[in-house]
Design a protein around this nucleic acid. Structure first.
Length: 995
RNA sequence: GGGCCCAUAGCUUAGUUUGGCUGGAGCACCCGGCUGAUAACCGGGAGGUCGUCGGUUCAAAUCCGACUGGGCCCA
């Protein structure tokens, strides 16, 4: 099957031999092509008349530049969208989106001007403050846009939705009013993390940023029972909350002991805690359960809260444990989530002695004017003086601090508007059950669990730069929720200013008439949680319901994709809002990636070390290297990323592919062979095999992307590229050296040309830059025709060329090749020396059979044997170990090879060795393929015999004219080279012959 | 304190759903090979207590439990 004759000019043309351009060069060339031909603009919406694919971009917060972690989910989104476009869907919608408002943006501006409190912001000017927030958001939007475009993440960046734009805010108002009308938006009290220095609540995400080790008091206080000679022992790490104490909580089923202390009154505590407080054998006078203690009354440690119905008694709750403390829990409803819940249930009201700056007021003269933490030692000293301090220690633990000003936070109940999510729990769970997640465990695991315990959602914020809460309160306390700008104008009785900017400065000035009583009402001075903005994206991006649009209130999104943190973020608010407004899920399919970790395994976003800056990396490595890194790993687990992994990612599969393409282009261009687009009809075994592999890969990639999982798609492409390079191409090389009009050359060229173009199309969603480059080059469009981008073409059709029998046969063949190599290795006979035969025993040849004689020829050629013999299993005794190397299997030997070549074959091998050295020398002295050369070669003994016998054939192979053979020693000279073949020396003089 | 995920060679990992024949592969390393893809490609070698312990089973990387370590979320 190997054509004889001289090697043909292959890659040795102007740019052919240079190999493939670098990934960064491909990246730049493709970006320039897309830009010049406006290809993203044409591709982004998908096919206008095609089936609708519903998608929404989760808006990233533009309060800082993107980091590498943001690149991962953007890659995943892009893969799915590109696939859908190639399948002819209309994408509704591909709008880029930006989350422009909220505390994070405000913090940027506060830092810029050193603002630290509401007072300072108001002195600075709220309007100016908001203007700067808006400008900062736009500034960062530009950086994000740049990064996204460099990544090849195709969205409509020219018409993005921004959560700060007036139409968007109007849609959010509509949503809020819809909830208000259904009783789902209400005002109440809620326990939230609060920074007294910044005078604002913090989101849980911000709280998580500021945990730090600290030392706090750990004190056990006596709460004397009323009309009883015993004291309750109560443990706390926040003495400053004791003045707000209203209840003590016990567990109904826990056992409590009364212990004689020796000094002072007897004390009550959980039996489990006795050993911790009383080492040795304390005298227990009585045992009782929590239930027995219920409703006993006690005297509070301070009288800061004053009297009230039901206060200062023991109540029961299951949350109490005795693993820490005394099993009797001090309950200050203002200052804890459980405290608040129990206080509400018991109807005791709240007591909050602190002002907005966390300073004690007049209710307790002892600590008047003191900050809450400053009050601790004063309060403890007072308890001690009154004999109520049973034990006073300190505790090292983590406690939340404000991540901006380092001030200790406190949890406190404050006025807040909230969405009554707890009333939607059943619907949330029911609607979530019908969604599909990758990875699957999230649906009922982390996300589903979260839904079952959905708490009411505090949506109001005491801040400035955000969507204003559209609720006005009249003096009688009636709330009026405004759901549109028109309604606002109507209720205020005056036209709105033009242009109308619905932010605080403007909206706060507008008074509306109360919808209930007609009195003048003032707006509640809150903005809303930015997560409500983001969760409104599916409809608010269309200004629904104020303008006609492609938004369909009945239909969920087909697909969303974000990183894992969004289970509690965007995914959650999407579902809550979709459930409340439309009673349907927000999306059908979610593809969720884990976070990136830096080299050491730490979370990247918390990294203080070397920052991997995405735009610089994209520019240096090309986007596909980074995309491929994410796609070829299991992104549902945390992925470690470093400079090294990033650089490697682009080399393995993509580098091999680039090399294969460069090889093809060199061959094709040398003889001006035209690109082939139709499925070639070659009957060649390797050609049919490659076409089958391409067809099978199409099935695998299609299947993966249909189910929103890029992982199997990337794996299938990787395996195909590997097979193409290491088997098809290597085995087909001789055919590419045949003359241009030779049928074998034609068939190989057609197959490779077609296959590479198909691979480009299949890989286009994954690695759009490399694919575009391959497609343009292989099809010889050469970046000239904008309408012929691989991304504007359709998805490859099924060619029907998948042939499982053929593929199984080839797998078998390749296994035999490995066995044969092993046998050669053990015999110590190089691949270059021909051997007489490879003997295959029985069974292994069965899968091989369908490959026919071509298969055996391929096997013989690959293993450099003259014949492949198939013999029955039982005939191993014909191949004695002394002459043969045998490969053993379970049922006896599998294959055998002669231990050494025959003299004739050995001579052939020697001639081949000489030829190889001379070919290598041709190359080293800079000859091109068709250059002629004058060779004088000096050899002796068996080398001389071997070369002399094949003189004509060697001269032709080497393009040597004249080709002189001598047994005399060549004198040293600049053109003379000396060689050694297995201990036999020879030398040669090579001189270029001018054309 | 509760929940979810993870642990396989120095590194990156396949295999775990559905238990089964010597646990595959890539990078790096050592040795060898390659007649024009040579910063490519091929073969061989070395390197694994499949995190630990226990259980189920004829049989466990795979199923179950506990523990240890890592990541994330919640409190």
């Amino acid at each position: 099957m190997t054509p004889s004759g001289p090697p043909m000019p292959a890659s040795d043309t102007e740019d052919g031999a240079a190999g493939a351009p670098s990934p960064a060069e491909i990246h730049r060339r493709v970006l320039a092509f897309w830009d010049a031909q406006r290809i993203p603009e044409r591709a982004v919406p998908g096919a206008p008349g095609g089936p609708v694919f519903r998608f929404a971009e989760g808006p990233p917060g533009v309060n800082g530049p993107p980091h590498l972690g943001h690149v991962e989910p953007r890659t995943l989104k892009d893969v799915v969208l590109r696939y859908r476009r190639m399948r002819g869907h209309a994408i509704v919608s591909a709008m880029a989106g930006w989350d422009c408002q909220g505390l994070p943006v405000e913090l940027t501006i506060e830092k810029r001007h050193g603002l630290k409190s509401h007072r300072e912001i108001e002195a600075f000017g709220v309007e100016r403050f908001c203007d700067e927030c808006r400008a900062a958001a736009l500034e960062y939007e530009a950086v994000w846009r740049e990064m996204s475009q460099q990544l090849g993440f195709w969205l409509d960046y020219d018409h993005p939705y921004r959560t700060m734009d007036a139409p968007y805010i109007e849609s959010v108002w509509w949503a809020l009013k819809s909830m208000f009308d259904r009783g789902l938006l209400e005002k109440g009290h809620y326990v939230l993390a609060y920074c007294p220095r910044c005078e604002t609540t913090l989101s849980s995400h911000e709280v998580a940023l500021g945990y730090a080790e600290t030392t706090d008091p750990s004190v056990t206080v006596r709460f004397p029972l009323v009309d009883d000679a015993r004291d309750l022992l109560v443990w706390t790490t926040t003495p400053w909350t004791l003045p707000a104490n209203l209840l003590v909580v016990a567990h109904p089923d826990l056992e409590y002991s009364v212990v004689r202390t020796g000094e002072g009154r007897d004390v009550v505590l959980a039996s489990e805690a006795v050993a911790r407080y009383f080492p040795g054998t304390p005298e227990v006078t009585e045992r009782l359960t929590g239930r027995d203690l219920a409703e006993r009354r006690y005297r509070p440690p301070f009288d800061g809260a004053g009297p009230g119905p039901g206060r200062y008694r023991i109540v029961l709750d299951g949350f109490v444990t005795a693993t820490e403390g005394t099993g009797l829990v001090h309950c200050a409803p203002s200052f804890g989530v459980d405290d608040y819940r129990i206080g509400l249930r018991e109807g005791v009201g709240v007591s909050d002695p602190l002002d907005s700056r966390g300073v004690f007021g007049d209710a307790l003269p002892l600590v008047r004017g003191k900050g809450f933490k400053q009050a601790d030692p004063i309060l403890l000293a007072d308890l001690g003086a009154r004999g109520l301090l049973f034990r006073s220690e300190t505790l090292r633990h983590t406690y939340p601090f404000c991540w901006r000003c380092d001030h200790a936070l406190l949890y406190r109940a404050i006025d807040s508007w909230f969405v009554r999510t707890s009333r939607l729990t059943d619907a949330l769970v029911r609607l979530n059950a019908g969604t599909t997640w990758i990875p699957a465990h999230l649906r009922d695991g982390r996300f589903g669990n979260f839904l079952t315990q959905a708490k009411d959602w505090a949506v109001s914020r005491s801040r400035y730069w955000g969507t204003p809460l559209p609720v006005w309160i009249c003096p009688a306390g009636h709330a009026t929720c405004v759901g549109s700008f028109a309604e606002l104008a109507e209720r205020s009785g005056a036209p709105l200013p033009e242009p109308f900017d619905p932010h605080r400065v403007t909206v706060d000035r507008i008074a509306v008439r109360c919808a209930t009583c007609g009195a003048a009402a003032r707006r509640e001075p809150y903005t809303i949680d930015v997560w409500f903005d983001a969760g409104s994206a599916p409809f608010a991006q269309f200004h629904y319901p104020f303008e006609p649009s492609a938004f369909d209130p009945r239909t969920p999104l087909d697909f969303v994709s974000e990183a894992i943190d969004q289970t509690r973020g965007w995914y959650y608010t999407l579902l809550v809002i979709a459930t409340a407004l439309f009673d349907r899920p927000a999306f059908r399919n979610s593809l969720t990636c884990e976070f990136l970790l830096e080299e050491t395994g730490r979370k990247m976003s918390k990294s203080k070390g070397k920052v991997l800056e995405p735009i610089a990396l994209l520019d240096r490595l090309g986007a596909d290297a980074i995309r491929w890194l994410f796609l070829s790993q299991d992104f549902t687990s945390p992925v470690r990323v470093s400079e090294t992994t990033l650089e490697r990612a682009g080399n393995r599969t993509l580098g091999t592919l680039r090399n294969a393409v460069a090889f093809h282009l060199g061959n094709a261009r040398a003889d001006a062979l035209p690109p082939v687009r139709e499925v070639p009809a070659s009957s060649d075994l390797l050609d049919r095999w490659l076409l089958s592999r391409v067809a099978g890969t199409r099935t695998a990639v299609t299947g993966g992307l249909e189910s929103y999982d890029p992982r199997p798609a990337a794996a299938a492409v990787r395996d195909l590229v590997d097979d193409l390079s290491t088997w098809y191409l290597r085995r087909s090389r001789p055919r590419f050296w045949a003359p241009a009009d030779h049928p074998e050359r034609r068939a190989a060229h057609a197959t490779l040309s077609y296959a590479l173009a198909e691979i480009a199309r299949l890989a286009a969603p994954l690695v759009p830059f490399t694919s575009e480059w391959i497609y343009q080059e292989v099809t010889e469009l050469r970046f000239a025709d904008g309408s012929a981008s691989v991304h504007l073409g359709g998805w490859p059709a099924d060619t029907g060329r998948y042939d499982p029998v053929l593929e199984a046969g080839m797998r078998e063949l390749r296994e035999i090749v490995e066995i044969g190599r092993e046998l050669r290795h053990r015999a110590g006979v190089k691949a270059r020396i021909p051997l007489a035969e490879l003997v295959l025993f029985g069974a292994p040849s069965s899968a091989l059979a369908p490959l026919g004689p071509d298969g055996e020829a391929l096997l013989a050629d690959e293993l450099n044997v003259k014949h492949v013999l198939r013999v029955p299993v039982g005939s191993a005794d014909r191949y004695p170990e002394v002459d043969w190397v045998l490969r053993a299997g379970e049922g006896g030997p599998i294959a055998a090879m002669p231990r050494r070549p025959t003299p004739a074959l050995l001579e052939e091998g020697l001639a081949r060795e000489v030829a190889r050295r001379l070919q290598q020398s041709r190359k080293e002295i800079g000859l091109r393929l068709l250059d002629r050369v004058a060779i004088t070669v000096s050899l002796t003994g068996p080398l001389y015999e071997a070369v002399q016998a094949r003189r004509a054939a060697l001269a032709e192979d080497l393009l040597a004219d004249p080709f002189e053979i001598t047994q005399e020693t060549l004198p040293d000279g600049p053109d003379v080279r000396r060689f050694d073949v297995d201990g036999l020396g020879f030398s040669a003089r090579l001189v270029r012959v001018p054309a």
